[in-house]
Write a protein that binds this DNA or RNA. Sequence first.
DNA 1: CAGTGGTCTAGACCACCAA
DNA 2: TGGTGGTCTAGACCACTGC
Lengths: 257, 257
Amino acid sequence: MATTHPTADPIAAPDPAAATPAFSPLYQQIKELILQSLQAGEWKPGEAIPSEMELAARFRVSQGTVRKAIDELAAENLVLRRQGKGTFVATHSEQHVRYRFLKLVPDSGNEGRAQRSILECRRLRASAEVARALQLRTGDPVVQVRRVLSFSGTPTILEDLWLPGHAFKGLTADQLVAHQGPTYALFELEFGVRMVRAEEKIRAVAADDQQAALLGVPAGAPLLSVERLSYTYNDVPMELRRGLYRTDTHHYRNDLS
Amino acid sequence: MATTHPTADPIAAPDPAAATPAFSPLYQQIKELILQSLQAGEWKPGEAIPSEMELAARFRVSQGTVRKAIDELAAENLVLRRQGKGTFVATHSEQHVRYRFLKLVPDSGNEGRAQRSILECRRLRASAEVARALQLRTGDPVVQVRRVLSFSGTPTILEDLWLPGHAFKGLTADQLVAHQGPTYALFELEFGVRMVRAEEKIRAVAADDQQAALLGVPAGAPLLSVERLSYTYNDVPMELRRGLYRTDTHHYRNDLS
DNA sequence: CAGTGGTCTAGACCACCAA
DNA sequence: TGGTGGTCTAGACCACTGC
């Protein structure tokens, strides 16, 4: 597994899969191996992965090397460490930070759950634009969902989701309505699709008549347009989302460093 | 310095400054000490800090402990490691990522430098709102700057800056005009104020007549409102900035994970 | 109590850089 | 060549969790 490393197994198995020309440190290779197991579903979201000692034994490296690999996975929010208990596969379900990717927060105070209303959930063929974003071919099957999220009864977010049809075969509006908690949790539970990172492009736009009606604002009102592309492991895009946020009582919060 | 730790100096100097009741790991204490030196200006932005070995000797801990402290400082972008050369105090000047805090990017292609035009630079007394943000008292002296940033000749950003008067005594419009590169670099060089992190609140708003005129858009056009509070070390707020971004050719880019 | 992650050390060697 | 950060190991002990 190691391309070269000093003490452990210096001459051991020449590693038939050593087709990697570029050097990478041992702990990166270990990280990659753990990543592959995560991707393959060897451990389900919320479950514990093997202890550092076990992994060290499995991969024939020291605990410190495994630790450094896991450190990086934890920094990327792929995995969650809990002292005295173990290391757990991150999930959108009961992660203490629910709605990890939603950065819209109320201007003051807290708010309860979001009320979801599904306006549409249908299968169609990918437009050129959607196909490009999701790395599909134009005309490939996709699922489109349109919904409104309300906080304390006020419609605040109008969004469209596009999902690759092959990965979300059985998705129905009923399922979306029935499910409690983050939609990304549903994707994990029902379709085995885990979103691990996303990129957002944010703009200010004016509401058109239809959007204004759905959000209960005057036509032409300024709205935050948030286009999000979400990725599973290995940088595979699995969801395109276009959201319109009302920002009269909420704001998009971002921390820079 | 260590509240308790096993091998190094177990009985040594009881550390008169050990007024910290809560336990914290050694490397955190080292990090804190390095942070204090950074804050005190022991090493200037862009300069190298002492090598890991030197710091380990100075603080009487192992290199590994210093390393972990520096790891965290590097993760927070306070310091920059360069293999074979040393560890350097982060700066907004020639950091390979210029304009660290500006997340507005062109929809396609690259763009040259921003052209700045300073509309105003005056000393006044803090309003209640500004005072609260900057943790001053209402009526305390502040400096306000208003300026427009243009890209390829198109006015794109209109922003107001508020700075604590006591820390930015000599700031003039001329200085702002003369200076090349990021404004935060000027703050470092001329006033010794280093911004290390910031929080942004983003909204969509409609341009009023004055704003529209300055940005060359129709009145009522949707603009991105970006309110930024920037901090120096120790979470001291040092700048309030209110920006209006045109997002017809640019967008605000954010990465989630 | 045993098992987990968290801290700390000491020492070896590697990769990179500059003189 | 010597000095820097980067990787890796081995072993000790600490802090937290749950049985």
